[in-house]
Design a protein around this nucleic acid. Sequence first.
DNA 1: CTAGATCCCAAACAATCGTTTGTTTAAGAT
DNA 2: ATCTTAAACAAACGATTGTTTGGGATCTAG
Lengths: 208, 208
Amino acid sequence: MAKAGTKKTARRRTAETAASQRQNNRRDQVCAAAAKLFAEKGLAETSMRDIAAAAGMLPGSLYWHFPSKYDLFLQVHAEAAGQIAQRVDAALKETVGPWERLEAAAAAHMAGMFEKEGTVALLQPVFPDDKPELSARLREQRDAYEARFSALVEALPLAPDVDRRLLRLMLLGSLNWSPHWLKTGARRRSPAEIGRAFVRMLRQSSEA
Amino acid sequence: MAKAGTKKTARRRTAETAASQRQNNRRDQVCAAAAKLFAEKGLAETSMRDIAAAAGMLPGSLYWHFPSKYDLFLQVHAEAAGQIAQRVDAALKETVGPWERLEAAAAAHMAGMFEKEGTVALLQPVFPDDKPELSARLREQRDAYEARFSALVEALPLAPDVDRRLLRLMLLGSLNWSPHWLKTGARRRSPAEIGRAFVRMLRQSSEA
DNA sequence: CTAGATCCCAAACAATCGTTTGTTTAAGAT
DNA sequence: ATCTTAAACAAACGATTGTTTGGGATCTAG
């Protein structure tokens, strides 16, 4: 087929595809195990040995996939943020009213946080002061995601005396705090329902 | 004067008072230093060496005042919780209306969290899974404090379809999350004002 | 068949952790 | 002056931390 192409590209492409089949087989597995542990115990309380054991390999082997523990955490964080952002964006595409959009975003935010065990790690802000680079990256990811809510609140038809910033912070705070009391088992209402309920509680009081 | 009293009691009393003057001189100092560090970096990220350095003594000397790191943390946590509870109770004594009482409690909660640097440590729930005793004690302290808000919400005149539990959780979540974005310097509104604003946002929408 | 890449193991590295031990200093009590 | 106790120092303990090193499979490309 592509044998007529330049030797280099042809060789490289086959090498890439063949390699990528074999490549990163267990990388995602490591990520998943790390996500779960980070979400359960936090960054500092989770050791590389714990992650390695959960992923079924030795501690040193992790360093073939990730250059450091913080890079691994950053990867997990980015994936979690991306998943929730994807959910929110998908929900927003199907919704039109300003309040309905905020409600859909809150529901997607909650559903995204609780869909997988590891995703909750996103919201617990862990900013190690001795790793300013890591903290900066985490803030970037978080800010980029939360910008969606800034826009949604900005679009609300509100009475002129309502502090939009405070409304946004109140909603996000109550959403992000929910993992502390919402247990995954035997929940009365689904996470998405709770997110919608929070938005509705804010709605009538501040409508224009 | 008291020389006619029994030798034992007289001697013991003077010994106690004299000892208590000399006793626990730097214990509070250690507590304050630990509270500040715990609030800034959390339990796991704060080492006994950090605390000792901040208190101006050597690591081993801490163990004369506290039997372990977790006991020290528990003490700090209890003091912080007690201070906020005291503020809330004082504010409630002067307020009568159900909504006004909730508003006053939220304001006191916020003011208490931000009055000292170390007090914020209260709200960041740190429950090490390998120390169930510590986790249980922390939960006790937190639950005992938050019971106030349960009672306050229960006393609100609400429409019958309003979920009081969810309203309480929303308020407490947004309050407890505020340290993540409310910077101590150059704040637009005081913590107490923000707490009041949060309650007002909930008020009109759910009033009976 | 050889060369090289991929992936992991086995073992150790230096650093830091919470904690313990033995000793010393200072001050009040007898 | 002697005895006791509070409070700290100095130094180390074993365990755990994140990470490095070197080598051994396993597979693919040439």
